[in-house]
Design a binder for these strands. Structure first.
Lengths: 245, 245
DNA sequence: GAGTGGTCTAGACCACACC
DNA sequence: GTGTGGTCTAGACCACTCA
């Protein structure tokens, strides 16, 4: 009845994956429209000559990608595309940077004890001027500055951090080792900014260049904030990408 | 041997889900640390008295959540938390805006036929100066300007768009109705910019204000681009948020 | 060769939707 | 009742890793 491709028994590609591709293509090409029902699982078993477990695996993966949804007792249906749900989006790092075998390095500019300024203290739930370890690093991509990172760590971990070799371990590794607790969560805010004179010098770019600013709060157990990190990323070397369906 | 909870056979919670919770808790609590091996699948079958398919479903879901990874022939291991894998992130619209019952309105400033400038033509795979429908709108949040949207639509849909009532239907609705094809995909790039004089006037803010620029290409079947949309969003009223584990 | 995860099958029972 | 998706089992064969 249908002219759609069938499962290639000789292929090294798993059946469930072939089926997933077949159904996914039909949806993506628009042959199946939102809220259209798919054939039932048993029909798919017959049509493609595979077991129900195989059909279910293909359907489950498509559902987890947001292409399908199932309703018990009724059937499996094509999901609406995410195109217009513009209030909730996914961004990932620019493909451009990612696909080139990026060489991301790091240069430490500062590693010292400082008192927290008011705003940082508030975020970290510390008294004003509480002691913290300040780590300032420039991140380099392919040898050229990409981002400036300022990190403020409070508590016992701060002492350890001041003595640590940052070229070897990550900040979180040191925090964990020093305190025996693990960083389990982080919150980030992303804003647009322009680069100021201080940043311009360290990033070897001109003042006023548009940039991303990412403010990150890292937490250990019991929602205790332990690190405030502010990253400034050059807008001319970096952009986010999203593909929506 | 182990003091961990076992599967409750009377519970209405599926076995695979109970197992997933048990293992997930152990990981999240830090009893299992990154790169620690989990018991093998057959060991888990014995330990919890369930079939391998059930074990595998629990493991697969934990893996898809990023808590585990498997290596064929070796075993299944605890994944590193995503905190440090800063090359792939998820962002959503700022909570702040979202949680307040936002009133998002739209004011149309322009709706006319224009020839495409070179760059837009290239993106839309059209000849230079090809005709397009230009739609310019200001998006208002709580009555104040938030974003400026410039949209260029090519092909048959352009004609329909020039006559359409944009206060009612979305651009995509009109495209679909006019052409009988559906917009099935979009690509977006997110960059930081500063607001220029033209934008400043329309957005009622000062020139030089940092802003997000989102360039979106929408596609109909066969990867044919149909719309180029450039949004400029005020950085003082808008930020992205991400929560990482 | 022994152990691991990756794939696949055939069959079972259930809860739910719809008639 | 019939058909749907949701869960679960027992068993099979494979490719891979490691000693």
């Amino acid at each position: 009845m249908s002219d759609s491709p069938s499962i290639d028994r000789e292929s090294f590609v798993p059946y469930y994956h072939q089926l997933k591709t077949i159904l996914g293509e039909r949806i993506r090409r628009g042959l199946l429209r939102p809220d259209d029902p798919l054939p039932s699982e048993s029909e798919l078993c017959r049509a493609y000559g595979v077991s129900r477990a195989t059909v279910r695996r293909a359907l489950a993966e498509l559902a987890s990608e947001g292409l399908l949804y199932s309703v018990q007792g009724k059937g499996t249906f094509v999901a609406k595309p995410k195109l217009e749900q513009s209030l909730f989006r996914f961004y990932s790092l620019g493909r451009d940077l990612k696909s080139r075998g990026l060489a991301l390095e790091s240069r430490t500019l500062s590693q010292r004890a400082v008192p927290l300024v008011e705003e940082a203290a508030a975020r970290l739930r510390q008294p004003v001027h509480a002691p913290a370890a300040e780590i300032v690093r420039v991140r380099l991509l392919d040898g050229a500055p990409l981002a400036l990172e300022r990190s403020y760590v409070v508590g016992e971990a701060a002492q350890a951090l001041l003595r640590a070799d940052l070229s070897q371990a990550s900040i979180y590794d040191i925090v964990e080792e020093a305190m025996g607790v693990r960083v389990i969560k982080a919150e980030e805010y992303l804003e647009p900014v322009v680069i100021d004179a201080f940043e311009a010098e360290l990033l070897e770019c001109s003042e006023g260049l548009p940039a991303f600013r990412i403010e990150r709060l890292a937490f250990v157990e019991e929602d205790r904030p332990i690190e405030l990190r502010i990253s400034v990323i050059r807008g001319d070397r970096f952009r986010f990408f999203a593909e929506l369906r």
